[in-house]
């Protein structure tokens, strides 16, 4: 097996694929969206709830997808918990830059913000899989925009 494959399917990714965190639905979410990749049939629903201070106290997902998509969704929900809307939006940008390979050119504290999400850097070697990794993030972005439980499709 080649090294790119091992880089892509790291243990952390495989672990989140097998045991996704925050998998399920929320009671009366503040935002909700459904993401669908018609090319491969991957489906992700993201729900979120804000606390009184405007921080996301819960981000959860359901759906069906490949290891990259599921692990991305799972790690995303962990990383977004406790963040504000603006921080969440910034992370969407950082993540997209990371997996499309545009991040290297850009200095700043993106690396620090990304934290353990950095393991998705291997995706850039597999351009056809970038959409698998970004689908949960696009869906989260749509969920933020949906606000009051209104479903919007990516």
């Amino acid at each position: 097996m080649d090294s790119d494959i091992r880089e892509l399917y790291q243990q952390v990714i495989l672990d989140h694929h097998r045991h996704p965190r925050n998998f399920g639905e929320l009671d009366s979410p503040d935002g909700r969206a459904e993401g669908f990749n018609p090319l491969c049939g991957d489906r992700v629903n993201v729900e979120l709830k804000f606390d009184a201070e405007g921080r996301m106290e819960h981000v959860a997902f359901t759906g069906q997808g490949c290891a990259i998509c599921t692990a991305s969704a799972s790690l995303m929900t962990e990383c977004l918990t406790g963040k504000t809307r603006a921080e969440g939006e910034a992370l969407v940008e950082d993540f997209r830059d990371l997996v499309t390979g545009t991040r290297d050119a850009e200095p700043g504290d993106a690396e620090e913000r990304l934290g353990k999400l950095a393991i998705f850097a291997g995706v850039r070697e597999f351009p056809v899989r970038v959409k698998c990794a970004t689908l949960p993030w696009h869906t989260f972005h749509a969920a933020l925009a949906s606000e009051s439980g209104r479903v919007s499709t990516e």
């Binding site: 097996m1 494959i5 399917y9 491969c40 490949c66 290891a67 990259i68 899989r129 698998c132």
Partner: peptide, 11 residues
Amino acid sequence: HPHDVGTILDR
């Protein structure tokens, strides 16, 4: 997932 199968086989 078949996508993961496809990527590994492709390599």
